[in-house]
Amino acid sequence: MKVKDLAPRRRADVVVKVVSLGEKRNVIGKDGSSHQVMDVLVGDETGAILMSVWDSNIPKVTQGKVFAIEDGFVSVHRGSMRLTLGREGKLVETQGSFEVNTQNNLSDKVVEDEPRRRFR
């Protein structure tokens, strides 16, 4: 799969290069536990997307590294697509040599955030 093919609320297995790192911030989870999260711009030759990297994965991520995202998921946060790891997701460092197409940043495009269906 290529970055340009990512779509909201879909699973994703993709190889990406880290373009830039955002600031780490502390957040409180739904269960009241504290977590760290950092938004990272990643991409391939077809496009770029912000990826939310959590807790123990933050130290693994540095600019220029290439990762295979296994069991990723594209979520929508405040009208913007974000790549995250799924529940069983893996961030695996790999080899690759390509330039990232930052002109096609999927996170810059406004996406309607459909409400989650609740089953009774």
Rank of each mutant, 00 (worst) to 15 (best):
S97N: 15
E88Y: 12
V14H: 00
G43Y: 06
Q36Y: 07
G89V: 03
V40K: 02
V27Y: 09
K109A: 10
G79A: 15
A12S: 13
K2W: 02
K109D: 08
M38D: 02
N104T: 09
S20E: 15
D5C: 03
D108R: 13
S34E: 13
I49G: 07
V76E: 05
Q103N: 14
N105E: 06
M1F: 10
D31K: 07
L50M: 14
R78V: 05
R25D: 08
R118M: 14
R120H: 12
L106E: 02
V61F: 06
N26C: 10
M51D: 02
N101Q: 10
V53K: 01
N57Q: 12
D108W: 04
R82M: 06
E45W: 05
S56R: 14
V16L: 01
L83M: 09
I49E: 00
G89A: 01
A68H: 10
V37H: 06
E114C: 11
N26M: 14
G89H: 10
Q36K: 11
A68Y: 01
T102F: 09
F67T: 05
L6C: 01
Q103C: 05
V37W: 03
Q63H: 03
D31P: 06
L41C: 06
E114H: 15
K2T: 08
D71Y: 13
S75M: 05
K109E: 11
K90S: 03
S33G: 08
V37G: 06
V92R: 14
H35I: 04
K2V: 04
P115A: 12
N26A: 15
S52W: 07
V19L: 09
T62M: 08
V42A: 04
R9T: 10
V66M: 07
T84D: 12
V27G: 00
R78H: 12
E88T: 12
T46Q: 00
P59N: 10
V92P: 04
E99I: 08
V61G: 02
D55R: 00
V110E: 14
G72D: 05
G72N: 02
V66H: 06
Q36R: 11
G79L: 15
I49D: 04
I69L: 03
S34A: 09
N105W: 00
N101R: 00
R25M: 05
V19S: 04
A48H: 02
L85R: 01
L83W: 01
S20C: 11
R82Q: 12
V74L: 05
V19N: 06
S80I: 08
A68W: 06
T102N: 03
S75V: 07
P115H: 03
R25Q: 13
E45R: 04
D13L: 02
K65N: 13
E93F: 08
V27C: 02
K30D: 13
I49V: 14
D39A: 11
G86A: 09
N57Y: 15
G89Q: 08
